[in-house]
């Protein structure tokens, strides 16, 4: 079980670097979507036996993160007529370097954390930390609203990965509530992105500077 799990998480960590290094928005969105699908499979892999509620949550997660949200973002991207991230605050090569350093640091930190024996041999914690860090770099390092949303979602993917540690103890109701909140959140973000596009005729967040001291 652990080898499949580690393979999937390793894939998700690779996708982090892809998202950090790419200047084209469609590739960032695709990296995020594939990552969402990969992580969506985890609950089924971890529980080993087939439980239909777990499978259902996994299916909904994959649907929302892999298809629903990316479709929403692609629509916003076409409406705003932008394809590329130009002049980000943190360049693409520095972002990649940061991501690589972050991944190494995540592995190092995770080794020092006290973990239960069944989690110690997996990439769950380092993968989660590295993904959260990647999302954070994208969130603060990019200027286009769509890239920032992608960063936010990658951060959420990392937290979701961390949540796998608690899979056996959190009731399904709580799990689905969390999923619902995230979905609504992204939906709301999508609407606001659309309004910003109409009000400012651009999705460049550097133009959002009227309000300051």
């Amino acid at each position: 079980m652990n080898s499949t799990l580690n393979l999937l998480i390793g894939l998700a960590m690779g996708l982090n670097l892809l998202a950090l290094g790419s200047s084209r928005l469609p590739s960032v969105i695709r990296a995020m979507a594939v990552q969402g699908v990969v992580l969506g499979m985890l609950p089924v892999v971890i529980t080993r036996e087939f439980h239909w509620p777990v499978a259902l949550v996994a299916l909904v997660t994959m649907g929302v993160k892999g298809f629903g949200i990316p479709a929403l973002l692609r629509r916003a991207m076409r409406a705003a007529n932008i394809e590329r991230e130009i002049e980000p605050f943190i360049g693409f090569v520095p972002s990649l370097l940061l991501g690589a350093i972050g991944t190494i640091a995540a592995v190092a930190v995770a080794q020092r954390l006290p973990l239960l024996p069944e989690h110690a041999g997996t990439l769950l914690v380092p993968g989660a930390l590295a993904t959260i860090f990647t999302g954070f770099v994208l969130l603060v390092g990019r200027v286009k609203a769509i890239s920032q949303v992608c960063g936010y979602l990658i951060m959420e993917n990392g937290i979701y990965l961390f949540g796998m540690l608690l899979l056996h103890s959190t009731p399904l109701l709580v799990e689905s509530g969390i999923l619902l909140d995230l979905t609504v959140g992204v939906f709301v973000i999508g609407i606001i992105v659309d309004r910003i596009q109409r009000a400012f005729d651009s999705l460049d967040t550097r133009k959002l500077t009227v309000l300051r001291e």
């Binding site: 969130l139 936010y152 959420e156 937290i159 949540g163 540690l165 606001i192």
Partner: peptide, 26 residues
């Protein structure tokens, strides 16, 4: 436009707060 700018900042900063408190809860 000012209201949308404020809402965007609220969502982005508030969203990060959401993420941190979820991670903390875990």
């Amino acid at each position: 436009p000012r209201a949308f700018e404020a809402t965007w900042k609220y969502l982005l900063i508030g969203g990060s707060g959401i993420a941190f408190s979820l991670l903390g809860s875990f």
